[in-house]
């Protein structure tokens, strides 16, 4: 169990810091809070938000990363969402996409549904699982300093990169980005593929 008093990072600040350096990276967010976190930073065509598909964020990121090997693909998702797709860590590690980074915003709870504790609260080490699966870079971040050291890895290290950011279990205001599937889909494809998007 992580002592809560070790955790000082605010989720909104952490996500904002990570996205500050994104450049033209493509962003996939998991359902719920991480989508609101990304929307609070800004809504862009290169963002694809999952409003469902719980457990699928990292694998969706893998599909994009394999299709777009010359672009950086960043997945930001919650601990509950990642726990639902744990097998995907093995699948991603075996594929070894050099351009994929997965960030888990870990509040040790299912924030969106009322802050019920997740397995990470009881000691399950997501970064350890990713490392054991074969992610060449995998770490857990507790402080602003560690976050600073890690941000460049997310965009530059040969992936797949995995980072768990331990954040306070606070509820931030909900910021709603667009949610219509076809709109998000066309907008993202347009940003990635340009004229080829209507193929």
């Amino acid at each position: 169990m992580t002592p809560q008093d070790e955790i000082t990072l605010d989720r909104r600040e952490a996500v904002a810091r990570i996205l500050e350096d994104r450049g033209d990276a493509l962003l996939i967010t998991g359902l719920g809070s991480t989508t609101w976190d990304a929307a609070a930073v800004g809504d862009y065509p290169r963002n694809f938000y999952l409003w469902g598909a719980m457990g699928g964020a990292a694998l969706l990121g893998l599909g994009v990363a394999l299709a777009q090997p010359h672009r950086r693909v960043l997945v930001i998702t919650g601990d509950g969402e990642m726990l639902m797709g744990l097998g995907g860590l093995a699948t991603i590690a075996v594929q070894r996409p050099g351009n994929l980074s997965v960030v888990v915003i870990d509040n040790e709870s299912y924030g969106e549904t009322g802050m019920q504790k997740t397995h990470t609260h009881h000691g399950v080490d997501l970064a350890g699982l990713a490392a054991a699966a074969g992610f060449p870079t995998s770490r857990t971040i507790y402080s602003r300093g560690e976050l600073e050291e890690t941000v460049s890895l997310l965009y530059e290290a040969c992936g797949p990169v995995f980072a768990v950011v331990k954040v306070e279990a606070t509820v931030a205001p909900t910021v709603l980005p667009p949610r219509d599937g076809p709109y998000l889909r066309d907008r993202f494809r347009g940003a990635v593929l340009g004229d080829g998007a209507s193929e």
Partner: peptide, 26 residues
């Protein structure tokens, strides 16, 4: 072709959604 071995089939649904969003068919 890239053959992607999965641990469970639902991974494949998410993967292929991502593939198409990135411009590839699966």
């Amino acid at each position: 072709m890239r053959a992607v071995s999965l641990t469970t089939e639902e991974e494949g649904v998410a993967l292929l959604a991502g593939a198409w969003l990135g411009g590839e068919r699966g």
